[in-house]
Each structure stands twice: as C-alpha cells, then as structure tokens.
C-alpha cells in the first residue's frame, strides 16, 4: 500500500517536472525577447534531444551504436537533395530524409543482428566512415566536398523566423519524445529490454529477437534522420563534415551522463552538457572544455551508472543511511 503511493508520488513529481519544464521552454522566447543566439543554442539543443533520444532507444535494445552520424547525415543529405531538386518544402522532405535513414538503418541492422556490444560498435562506426566516403565521392548528387545549400525550414524573409522555428522544433521534439516514450512503455519497449538483458531468455520467451532488433534500428534511424534533416535545414547548408566522429559520439555522451534507458536521461544530459560547453566557451576555454566533458563521462560511468537522473535517489538513500 505504502509502496504504491510512493510510486505514484514519484510519477506525479516526474509529470509535474515535465509540464513545468515544457512551460518554461515555451516561455523562454517571451521572457528573453528574440535573442538570436539563445534561440540558436536552444534549437540545436532540441535537435540533439531528438537525436540522443533516438540513440537511447537503440541502446535500449542492447545495441550501442558508435556511428549514428551515418543516419544523421543521410537524413540531412536526402532531405536537402529532395528539397532542392523537387522544390518541396523542407517540412515534407524531412520525413523522406527520416524514412531513407530508416531504410538504410534496416540494412545496417541486418548486418548487426548477430553481433553484440563492441563488435556492433565497430561495424556501426565503420558504416559512418563508409557513408562519409561515399557521400564525398558522389559529387554529382551531393556536391562532394563543397556540399549543398539547404532550404531554411522557415524562410529568412519571415519576420522573427527564428522564433517560429524554435516553436516548431519544440513541438516536433515533444512529439518525437512522446512517441519514443510510448514505444519504451509499450510491449515493444519491454521486448527491447528483455533482449538487452538476456537475448537467449528473450528468445525462449517467444520474442522474435531479429524482428525487434531491426525495428529498434529502423525507428532509431528514422528519428535520427529527422533530427539530422532538421539541423541542416536550420543551418541552410550541408557538407560531409556532418559525418564527423564527434557527431556520432555526442548523443552517447548526452545519454550516458543524463541516464541511459530512461526517457528523461537524454533530455537532461543534452541540456546539461550543451549549456556547460557553451558556458565554458565564454571563459575562453578550449581543450579544457573537452577535458571536463571526458572527466564527467568517466566519473558518471564509474560512480553514477544511472546518470544524473539518479542523483535524487542517491541523495535520498544517503540521507536514509546517515540520519
């Protein structure tokens, strides 16, 4: 009885926190005015929240990708190319970008089905390298190293376009996060977790492991592709730099520091690390920033394996043991 209430309280607390932060996110442009820099930082943050959440979903099924930049870039390139050649609005092509990334994701997933942990890490990493090479090579399609101009999501001619872009991104992020949350809570999400915990047992339980693993790849690649497309339509330009190793590693850092396998972890991690990075930049810090980020990652893995989201619990348990 008591336990149930406690659980309910925590759920309520979480829901309240979510609603409050959403309201805050909605109010930021109104409070701060149209601050272009702040909005740019926030828009990129939202893109990475989607990206990190998508990565997290794949990790939930036990598949830790080290080359998600491949999907990020493929989504971006597909969307930019279609928007340019067919003259479609970016909002439509973003979905195509995501779908194509999902298609590639299934293909890559097929090679990864039988692989575990760092075999899979290496193969996904390799696919990012391959995608990079091929994109740079197909210069008639992708513009090669010169890249391609990409349409802005909302034309620059619209007054305060960045604010609309921000709200659009916020809306999309909420939609993506809610969909991912629903997947995580559904039978599919449970199946992912069962596979991650013990593939053999999952099989015995009657879970079609291959199908679910591919599904994880497809969904994760889809949202990653959408995030990538959104980012380049925000920048207005895409070059093969979009496949940089850092782009593959960032969502991992965000998820791990925030809290793996939870819905709020990637969000928290992205916000925290992005703000930290931007903040330290203002001190004129250069390499020191990355040293700090590396240290945070090591310390979190070592002492806080469930990420920042577990800090309240840790405090609680500490208070209990030392009254």
């Amino acid at each position: 009885m008591k336990l149930d209430r406690l659980k309910l309280d925590r759920m309520n607390l979480k829901a309240w926190l979510g609603v409050i932060s959403l309201i805050l996110a909605f109010l930021i442009p109104i409070i701060s005015g149209i601050d272009t820099y702040l909005l740019t930082v926030l828009i990129l943050m939202l893109v990475f929240i989607m990206y990190a959440s998508a990565w997290n979903l794949l990790a939930l099924s036990g598949q830790g990708s080290l080359g998600h930049a491949a999907f990020f870039g493929i989504g971006g390139y597909t969307s930019a190319i279609i928007a340019k050649s067919l003259g479609l609005p970016p909002l439509a092509t973003i979905l195509v970008g995501g779908l194509f990334a999902a298609f590639i994701g299934v293909l890559i997933g097929l090679t990864c089905v039988r692989l575990r942990e760092w075999f899979l890490g290496m193969v996904t990493f390799g696919f990012a390298v391959i995608a990079h090479t091929i994109t740079a090579e197909l210069s008639w399609l992708t513009g090669g190293w010169d890249g391609l101009p990409a349409k802005k999501i909302i034309p620059v001619s619209v007054q305060n376009y960045l604010m609309y872009e921000y709200y659009l991104m916020l809306l999309l992020t909420v939609v993506v996060v809610v969909i991912i949350w629903m997947i995580m809570k559904s039978r599919i999400g449970l199946a992912f977790e069962a596979i991650r915990e013990n593939e053999l047992e999952a099989k015995v339980m009657g879970i079609n492991v291959t199908r679910y693993k591919l599904m994880a790849f497809a969904v994760s690649a889809f949202f990653t592709g959408v995030a990538g497309a959104l980012q380049i339509h925000h920048f207005g330009y895409i070059t093969p730099e979009v496949y940089a190793i850092d782009i593959s590693f960032l969502p991992i850092i965000y998820c791990v520091s925030g809290g793996l396998f939870t819905i709020e972890g990637p969000i928290l991690g992205t916000i925290f690390i992005t703000l930290l990075d931007e903040g330290l930049k203002n001190f004129g810090w250069t390499y020191e920033r990355y040293i700090v980020i590396g240290l945070i990652l090591i310390l979190v893995v070592r002492f806080l394996p469930k990420g920042f989201v577990s800090i309240p619990e840790k405090i609680k348990s500490r208070l209990k043991s030392h009254p």
């Binding site: 390499y287 990355y290 040293i291 590396g294 945070i296 990652l297 090591i298 893995v301 394996p305």
Partner: peptide, 26 residues
C-alpha cells in the same frame, strides 16, 4: 566497472579518449 555491462566499457573508453586527446593538446 567490471561486470556492469559491456556498454559501460565503451562509454568509459570514450571518456578516456576525450580526456587523453585534449589533455595532450592542452
């Protein structure tokens, strides 16, 4: 972190990569 899952080893290594590369550059 031994025995806490293979993924953690990858994450720890990632942290070490960032740490060592940037420490040397710094």
């Amino acid at each position: 972190i031994m025995g806490t899952g293979k993924l953690n080893e990858i994450f720890l290594s990632l942290g070490l990569i960032y740490l060592f590369q940037n420490l040397v550059a710094f």
